[in-house]
Design a protein around this nucleic acid. Structure first.
Lengths: 401, 401
DNA sequence: CTTCTTATTCCAAGACGTGATTGAACTCTC
DNA sequence: GAGAGTTCAATCACGTCTTGGAATAAGAAG
């Protein structure tokens, strides 16, 4: 509590600049008039700040929009070529690196399959650095020319990473990467980053308070709170998968017993199916393929054993979601991740039903449960929002770090 | 997202004023030098703002503190007689109204026993108004002379109250009270209000992110987040008691099955004891007395049946707490409420042990589990923080509403 | 071409925080 | 006990900011 925001009149300008830039970036406003009315600033100030933004190459004028019989409004637009950002997704089975322009349009991608849990952190860092080098080389820039790099990890973010999924405990990933990049990347929880992406571009647009769930082998989550009056947007990680569902349940890889992850994690679902009478062996290898097949058997072929396993899964998912609804009162619950997409396909109505049964009615009414909308690039896209968010908060001050 | 904070230079002044006032109020700073160094503002500004605060009667100079061989610092102190606030606690068995000066020193209290769940909201409101009238009369003021009124309810706050405990659904309590008071009170969740009180004055002092649990017949909770760089303090309610612990558990009064409240609520504990072999009838009537007796039997008389029931309770409490730790990563977990106090007395080490077993280690390390420190006035005290918090955020602009 | 309407920019005024300077209050040393 | 040194507090000139209103730009309607 030593330093604070907003002291001098100059900071005021940066504050307003960040505000206006964010509105333009998110598409809430497209002209100076909108900016004036929604921000509460005077037209004069809008004019000043916008011309600064234009001078700095962040924003451009792009045609005009005729108004009721007067001078037309000139349309303002965030300029994509202001710079590039990189999003790194440390997933369970691969490291994905995506290059985006700062409006989050995808430019290039590198994917390398790695069982990340079995590789030492230094190796992971090296892998990431080489992918970043590859992906930036394609547009002829160096990492130093990036606006920033964001890394999404399946665990707690910050200077030191804890990720039970990867067996990481206090790994200084940001430090390892800084040495190779020349500046510090923003490392944070992948579900949190994804949540921001869903709020900006996906199923949580317009949400004040969204929970994003990331289902795969593990089950992560995050809460994204919009900037209310008098406060910045904030988000934080929910280690939802390691919530206890049954005091005497099976032992989780985190060491505790009865974690939700041991019921709704992809491997847990498959194990439950394998242990069921009436199950038949899969034709494929790999969790992703097998879960796909399981869902297929339940949905297409109406196989009772598969159906039962999925119904049980829906029960746990629904209850787990209702707990989140009761705890954080979200207005949106986004189910994402590869397993999330598969399960939604088969179980969304069932999940909603069960969640309704367990959540407090007035809280359930607030919460819309929806599948994620960002598809298979969601991981890198989410990670890429991290440096962009910082850039916006800074009003577009260039340069990483 | 239409209006925003901080536009003009005048707002800047109010912002700084609120900042400095808050620091003085919370005792973080006691002189102009402290203010300058911790706030980052220049001595000149401190001087200006402080003289405004003094002129408005919020702050006074109170002696001096010698410094290393120079002019002594004059000590600054928030003046209690700036005004009064009222805190109203709508508890399970009573309505308590406390009158405090704005530094939260208790002045007077009114308690009326009411089974609040069995009284229509309008009656509750009338009851509150008459108690407020009584308590203010004792210092010779009228409600209109108050700085504000805060009301803590066992449910969701805002203009419309949902409180399963009371059977309230969409009750416009603030509106009902406004008609009698002449201004709108601040109605919010009691656990949330209590959390703020624990952060300001109790076991959560210095916490960045505290979870406060309110245990009684029901089990409420709240998360209080300190003002980080770039954001105001925020808190929200956690309907922790209605978190599902067992999909097939007993039916809760909220309608769902297996809520935590049906395991750790005071009545549930007593019921579990009554159903145990080896239990003997209580000598007393009433939940509070009976739970006291139960704890006494377990601790003083080492009665096995009582011990077993409490151990089971500790298991659920510990698991429920570990879930909160995993979800919101608090640095403090405060166990409060009358039942909380009793249970802590008997079970704190057991609860800690079980929570450690289920929480992720790096998150458990962050979280200190402590009993609440505010005693039996905590409910009204918590409620009283609501108007004070608003007052501080406004930099001390007088007048309710 | 003129007038009307709406968008944007220009300008003077008012407010704020800052750094430097001045004044105030106390301690220490000679 | 007087003067030097030190630390705290208030004042002032300066640069920056937002604002409201006036002025200008740009198209529509007549």
């Amino acid at each position: 509590m030593t330093t604070r925001t907003q002291k001098t009149t100059r900071d005021l300008r940066w504050h307003n600049r960040a505000d206006l830039l964010t509105r333009l970036y998110l598409g809430e406003c497209t002209n100076r008039n909108d900016l004036a009315s929604t921000s509460g600033l005077s037209a004069a100030t809008i004019s000043n700040v916008v011309s600064d933004l234009i001078a700095d190459g962040l924003v451009g004028e792009n045609g005009s929009q005729s108004s009721a019989g007067g001078r037309p409004r000139s349309l303002l637009r965030v300029l994509p070529d202001f710079g590039y950002v990189v999003g790194v997704d440390i997933a369970e089975t691969a490291i994905r690196v995506g290059l985006f322009d700062w409006t989050l349009e995808p430019i290039a991608e590198e994917v390398r399959s790695v069982a990340t849990a079995q590789v030492p952190p230094q190796k992971v860092a090296d892998q990431i650095l080489s992918e970043i080098a590859a992906v930036t080389a394609r547009v002829g820039i160096t990492p130093a020319g990036l606006l920033g790099v964001g890394v999404g990890v399946p665990g707690a973010g910050g200077a030191v990473i804890h990720a039970p999924t990867l067996g990481w405990s206090a790994v200084p990933l940001a430090g390892l990467l800084r040495d190779g990049l020349g500046f510090a990347p923003e490392v944070d929880n992948g579900a949190m980053a994804l949540g921001q992406a869903e709020v900006w571009r996906g199923a949580a647009r317009g949400s004040e308070r969204a929970v994003t769930l990331l289902l795969g082998i593990g089950a992560g989550g995050a809460l994204s709170m919009a900037a209310g009056p008098g406060g910045r947007a904030r988000s934080f990680t929910l280690e939802w998968g390691h919530t206890v569902v049954d005091l005497d349940g099976p032992t989780c890889r985190c060491g505790a017993r009865g974690c939700l992850e041991t019921y709704i994690g992809a491997e847990a679902i498959l194990a439950r199916y394998a242990a069921t009478r009436g199950s038949t062996p899969f034709a494929t290898e790999g969790v992703v393929e097998q879960l796909t097949e399981l869902v297929d058997r339940a949905v297409q072929h109406r196989e009772p054993a598969a159906r039962t396993v999925l119904d049980t899964t829906a029960g746990y998912l629904g209850a787990g979601i209702s707990n989140l609804i009761n705890l954080v009162a979200p207005d949106r619950v986004i189910i994402s991740g590869w397993a999330g997409a598969l399960l939604c396909q088969a179980l969304l109505p069932a999940i909603r039903l069960i969640a309704r049964r367990h959540a407090l009615p007035y809280l359930f009414e607030l919460a819309r449960i929806e599948p994620g909308e960002l598809g298979h690039t969601s991981g890198t896209l989410g990670a890429a929002t991290l440096p962009v968010a910082r850039l916006l908060a800074d009003g577009g001050r260039r340069g990483p770090g």
